[in-house]
Design a protein around this nucleic acid. Structure first.
Lengths: 234, 234
DNA sequence: CCAAAAGTGTTAGTATTACACCCATGT
DNA sequence: ACATGGGTGTAATACTAACACTTTTGG
């Protein structure tokens, strides 16, 4: 073992900030677990845990997330690495934080391993969090807002087919402010022309009023456009 | 030690991508060290090394940077954490990458510890790099370009006092394209009005032509504006 | 025919771009 | 006087925001 070093090491964990977007209630939430072990037993925290030697960072966060909450999320992005010396009372623990977003009504929560419970909490009214997890959530919120205007975040939250008004509602909730219908469509139009948003020809009937045209998201077309430097602006 | 875990751990390093902006040559460079130890002995790599138990991530990267190159950089930002399982032949090593930018003519290179040499290399023509450091550099370049338009990156590269034409030249090099003088000043004007760029009343005489007004950067004023959500657009 | 919800158009204000012009200095 | 580099102004164009209007459905 010519390359081995021998001095006290820092430990490495991953944590996940999983936002939940409740389309009906129009609220943004955060997935938390109630800790079943010390330290911070009984407090709410982000799902996460120690990395194994043979797994990638993202694999680790997905495993921990699934173990502690039962949730699997389609899209996860690395957020930031938090490594303040005193952030964990167990000793020197550095954590790589990831964030993602899901529809709470499309996942089944199931607490397990060292989590006593798992639940979505309103992002505007979070309970006190363990470790420096409040900082991590704040950082994730900032990233979410920034990402929204360039990446098709809203589309990852909708069903296979959706209407433009539904898409608009998603953005209104995520940005925390109502949008102008006409202007929203103007921004979206280039995406339709580029084939990123594809009209299916089908319609969906609302409780009252004119039926809405259904669209689907052509992810491959988006990948191509993104490679060319195009953005998904709203 | 109730909270101690005992399984094979991942090791943690930090690496620094320090860009050098040569104002005279108009080139962007990257600070590299020639490795003096295995693995990759003799290859060029980013300065960096293992974290100690009692130091923050940023403290670590600054220490390693100073030890291996003699360079101290005013501003460093976390870039991304690279953790692919096989990225290091020594075993499981995860690295937290930082990036920063300096003027090569304002630092004194001095290779030491496990680096055989330290030098700036042209960003467009880097030698083959150790580990996954080529990926890290590519990622840093992307971040630099993205950051430019919102943060006063250009100002961190100038002397205490500077002219607006000098500032414009910095941006032209960083963005890789010439700028329109008039339009650049129009973008800058709000920063002058907000007190972020302060005219000193002094002038600097060029080799020929009209003397240029000197400005200084009021970092505190910028912090205030930034907190209010303002950007430093160019 | 009316209410509700989807979808379109029009206009005023603002920001961006390209380019021409003026100013201060050394030779 | 003129070359050199610093500094300002303007007109055309593109983008944005606000709001009014039209279309399609169910009762």
């Amino acid at each position: 073992m010519a390359y081995t070093y021998d001095f006290p090491k820092a430990d490495l964990t991953t944590d996940a900030v999983v936002f939940g977007l409740d389309l009906d209630a129009g609220r943004l939430q955060v997935l938390l677990v109630e800790r079943g072990v010390d330290p911070f037993r009984g407090a709410w925290a982000l799902p996460g845990g120690f990395i194994r030697q043979d797994e990638d960072l993202e694999a680790c966060v997905r495993r921990e997330l699934h173990e502690e909450t039962g949730v699997e999320v389609a899209w996860l992005e690395q957020l930031y690495t938090f490594g303040a010396v005193a952030r964990d009372p167990r000793g020197r623990v550095v954590t790589v934080a990831y964030w993602g977003i899901v529809r709470p009504d499309q996942v089944r929560l199931r607490a397990a391993t060292d989590a006593a419970a798992a639940a979505f909490h309103d992002a505007e009214a979070l309970p006190p969090l363990a470790f420096d997890h409040a900082d991590i959530v704040a950082s994730a919120l900032q990233r979410l807002r920034g990402k929204l205007r360039w990446q098709p975040v809203g589309l990852w939250l909708l069903d296979e087919v959706f209407t433009l008004v539904e898409l608009e509602r998603v953005y209104a909730i995520l940005l925390g402010q109502p949008m102008d219908r006409g202007n929203f469509r103007k921004k979206i139009r280039p995406q339709v022309e580029a084939g990123v948003l594809v009209p299916t020809g089908q319609q969906r009937k609302p409780p009252a009023g004119r039926p809405a045209a259904l669209y689907r998201f052509d992810e491959a077309a988006w990948q191509r456009r993104e490679a060319e430097g195009a953005a998904f602006e709203v």
